[in-house]
């Protein structure tokens, strides 16, 4: 096996470095301060998340990745206000948040469109909740549906849409509320590989065109590197920040970049961080075929 001669994932071109410098000077949108989460279980108290702190800057795309059981979902649910942290606090634009609210949009892994509402009425839902008139909400919803390219389907019901389309509507629905941050909990996890790649590009296009900061949870390394400015790598038991990686892949992103040295170097680093040797149980294999049939 030949080893690729990869650069360090820490090497950044001037262009990338400049971009990060500019990014760090922007306002902090989400400031997570030492939040932790403990659950009661029959075996006693379990610490799912231990003092996680990080910040996201305006219009930054942050991915959270980690081994299973690191509490990625718990983390994002706490940020959304669907779970209460056991300790620490979450600041949005410097103000502490408690409970869910339309200032933090959320796209879930499962399909959560309201099946009894058309695409248009789904997108209008949040707008109507904020007290907009129906007419006003409708024209605004149309713009968002147009943005995700589903104008033709505005009167369709969710069961008539493909998985990818459903998630596009879910994104439009969350964005229609003009949230300060968009929280995405493995939104493309249930999609097939081709659709997923397409959705990733679509998401970057949306992100580029509107004023939104995104926090995106995934377990897919390629997805994280392809999408993120920075990747928050967690470790499990308890969930803690292991490392924050500044992705050295330049913008604008395209799928062809997935085989560039800086992409692969980042992926290698992520694999090192996420791989857990203690979980490998060796198999007990004996040769059960003719030697002449060797596949090597």
């Amino acid at each position: 096996m030949t080893t690729l001669n990869l650069p360090s994932y820490l090497d950044q071109t001037d262009q990338v470095k400049k971009r990060f410098d500019a990014l760090k000077k922007r306002d902090v949108i989400l400031d997570v301060k030492k939040i932790s989460k403990k659950f009661d279980s029959p075996q006693g108290e379990v610490e799912a998340i231990k003092e996680i702190s990080f910040q996201t800057h305006k219009r930054e795309f942050v991915c959270v990745i980690g081994p299973s059981g690191c509490g990625k979902s718990t983390l994002i649910r706490m940020l959304a206000g669907l779970e209460t942290p056991s300790g620490g606090e979450v600041l949005l634009d410097g103000k502490p948040v408690s409970g869910p609210g339309p200032d933090r949009g959320m796209v879930f892994q499962g399909y959560t469109l309201f099946p009894w509402l058309t695409v248009k009425r789904n997108v209008m839902f949040g707008l109507e909740m904020s007290g907009r008139s129906k007419k006003n909400a409708e024209s605004e919803a149309r713009d968002w549906i147009d943005l995700v390219g589903l104008s033709k389907f505005e009167n369709a019901y969710p069961h008539q849409l493909s998985g990818g389309m459903k998630q596009r509507v879910a994104i439009a629905r969350a964005l229609a509320n003009r949230p300060r941050i968009l929280l995405m909990d493995e939104p493309f996890g249930a999609l097939d590989a081709q659709t997923r790649t397409k959705m990733q590009s679509n998401l970057l296009d949306i992100w580029k065109n509107i004023d939104i900061t995104i926090l995106f949870i995934t377990h897919d390394l390629d997805e994280a590197i392809f999408l993120a400015d920075r990747i928050l790598v967690l470790k499990a038991h308890p969930g803690e920040v292991n490392e924050v990686i500044e992705v050295p892949v330049p913008h604008p992103r395209s799928p062809e970049q997935m085989i560039t040295p800086e992409f692969l170097a980042t992926k290698k680093r992520l694999e090192e961080l996420i791989h857990e040797p203690e979980e490998d149980v060796p198999m007990n294999l004996t040769l059960m075929t003719d030697k002449s049939d060797s596949v090597d």
């Binding site: 206000g81 339309p102 933090r104 879930f108 959560t112 099946p115 009894w116 909740m129 509320n177």
Partner: peptide
């Protein structure tokens, strides 16, 4: 009723009576 629908509604700003009449009942 799928709790995820209620959670989605919460993150969209639905509260109390709206959750009941706009999500639970139609759902």
């Amino acid at each position: 009723l799928d709790i995820a629908l209620l959670e989605a509604a919460l993150t969209l700003g639905a509260k109390n009576i709206n959750l009941l009449f706009r999500v639970v009942i139609p759902g």
